[in-house]
Design a protein around this nucleic acid. Sequence first.
DNA 1: GATCATAACACGTCAACGCT
DNA 2: AGCGTTGACGTGTTATGATC
Length: 228
Amino acid sequence: MNTDPDVATVAALIAVPARATILIALMDGRALPAGELARRAALSPQAASAHLNKLTAGGFLLMVSTGRHRYYRLANTEVAQVIEAMMPFARVTAQQTPRPAEPKPIQVARSCYDHLAGRLGVAFTQALVAGGYLTETENDFTVTDHGAGWFRKLGIDPVPATRSRRVFARKCLDWSERRFHLGGALGAAALTRFLELGWVARVPQGRVLRVTHTGQAELWRLLKISLR
DNA sequence: GATCATAACACGTCAACGCT
DNA sequence: AGCGTTGACGTGTTATGATC
C-alpha cells in the first residue's frame, strides 16, 4: 500500500491551463464571480463552472453565494504559496528571450495573496532581518523584542492572535527574486498597514502594487530601502 | 522496435433549466 | 432578465494491445 501523499492528484488539479489561469487570477486575494473567471481563462461559463467545481472540491477554492452571483476565492494562503512556489519553474519555459534590463512592475512590488512580494517584499524582509527586528528559522521568521517595538511603532501588532491557526510569520519564496519574503499573518498585517499609510497603492485589475512617493521616502528613512 | 487500431478519458460547446 | 449549473454530445489526446 502506498501511504505517500497523493501529490499527483493535487498537481493534476493545477496542471490544466484553464484552472491555472483561474488560480492566478485569484492570487491577489480577491473573490471574483464565475463569469469574470471564465472571461479571464477565455472559457465558456459552462466550462469555467466545471473547473471551479473541481478546484472547490479539491480544496483550492471557496465559494460564496451572494444573490444570483457566486464568488470564488482561494481557500487559504497555502494555496497561494503553492502557486507562487511554482512561478520560478513556469518562467523557465516562458522566458525564451533574455530578461529585460528594466524589471516589470509585477517584479518590483506586488501582493502575494495578502502580503508583500516582489523586490519590495524581499527588500523589506531583508531589512527587518538585517536590523535585528526578525530572526530566521528553517521555515518561519521570529519577531525579536527589538522588532516587536518597531512593529508597534509602525502600527502593526507583532503578537500572534491566540485563536488564529495561521502561521504568524511564514518564509514565503518569492518567484521573481528567488529569495524569501515575509508572509503569514504578520506579512498580511504589514501590507494592510502599508496600504493604510499610503506607502503602496493597488493597481486595478491585478496584484501589482505601486510604491508611492511617501512610501519611497518612508521606506528609505526607516529601513534604508531603495527600489532603484 | 515501429506502426496501427481501438478504447478510455479529459475537455470543450450547445441547449435547456433553475435560481435570484 | 441575468447568471450559473446540468446533461448530452463532439473532439482531441493518451494508453493499451495486436500485428508486422
